[in-house]
């Protein structure tokens, strides 16, 4: 029997490739996880609270109670993700030891380290991280993230920040691709990005890992918009289980993500699915309450 190599880049990044075109849903218990799976989620994120409730609760947000994560893992056959605080080596190792399929080193939780992220290449389990621009994206890839997502502004139900971050990253990628190689080192300096990662992006014409949309997706049309802007898939945090009819909402968002340019279909599935989560306008959000500024 040939050697079995675990935790390689191909295996970690490949896992995220398999999630493309899909919706990853936040869940807080086994029942929600089963609803998400039945609706067609490609994975669930097991949490103690969805982001909008984390906002309301205030205080320090930490890794979920392992009992919740275990309960969700036992309830579904699709991959289960969980969040660790930025830079919290021990939370991440605990989640890895529990066998979660993906760790989100997430700004939704209160950072444990306000300077350094995890060295994610050190782990067998793959990581997803948030980014607002190409510098953040490239730094996270440099640390070993196998998947990216926009930060957006979690728990607001307001898509504007996710749109800003997706457009920013993609326009910066286009710029890299049109640059000559002798200009790349200065661009790396300006972005605070590892040169080798920028070179890889230039050669591929895209990021070397998938980039999902996250942080503010509240309706099927929001999911379709992010796919239109080039997202590889969508995370929905509070949007599903804070809506009036989570089951219908979840199914509609899954369909809208796949058929994002089939506008008649999106109209059809958006009919009578109930009220989406209540949103927050960005100007109503104090600087200190903006999660996207964490861990940059």
């Amino acid at each position: 029997m040939n050697e079995r190599k675990v935790g390689t880049d191909k295996v970690k990044r490949g896992m995220a490739e398999m999630q493309k075109g899909g919706v990853i849903m936040d869940v807080v218990n086994a029942e929600q996880a089963r609803i998400a799976e039945a609706a067609g989620a490609v994975a669930v994120m097991a949490l103690e609270r969805v982001p909008s409730d984390i906002r309301k609760a205030g205080g320090v947000a930490r890794m979920a109670d392992p009992r919740i994560i275990e309960e969700v893992m036992a309830a579904v056959s699709i991959p289960v993700m969980a969040k660790a605080r930025i830079g919290h080596i021990s939370e991440a190792r605990v989640l890895e030891a529990m066998g979660v399929d993906y760790i989100d080193e997430s700004e939704v939780l209160t950072p444990a380290d306000d300077e350094f992220h995890l060295l994610k290449s050190d782990y067998t389990v793959p990581f997803v991280c948030g980014c607002r621009d190409l510098g953040e994206a490239a730094r996270r890839i440099g640390e070993g993230a196998a998947m990216l997502r926009t930060k957006g502004e979690p728990g607001t139900g307001n898509i504007v920040e996710a749109v800003r971050h997706m457009r920013k990253v993609n326009s910066q990628i286009r710029k890299i691709c049109s640059m000559s190689i002798d200009e790349l080192m200065v661009e790396a300096k300006n972005l605070g990005a590892p040169y080798e990662i920028l070179l890889e992006i230039k050669n591929l014409g895209r990021l070397p890992v998938v980039n999902f949309a996250a942080g503010g997706v509240a309706t099927p049309a929001d999911a379709a918009l992010m796919m239109e802007l080039g997202a590889d898939g969508v995370f929905v945090g509070s949007g599903i289980f804070k809506s009036e009819n989570p089951e219908k909402f979840a199914r509609a968002i899954v369909q809208a993500t796949t058929h994002y340019q089939d506008y008649k279909l999106i109209a059809e599935i958006s009919k009578g699915i109930g009220t989406p989560m209540h949103g927050i306008e960005m100007s109503g959000l104090a600087e200190s309450d903006r999660m996207q500024e964490r861990g940059i």
Binding site: N2, V6, G14, G99, V125
Partner: peptide, 22 residues
């Protein structure tokens, strides 16, 4: 689960003696 996901070399009949399978 994902932490057990792996890559290896496979012998595939009629195709190749060594395929990098993920």
């Amino acid at each position: 689960r994902q932490v057990d996901s792996f890559e290896t070399e496979l012998d595939i009949k009629g195709v190749t003696g060594s395929f990098n399978a993920v």
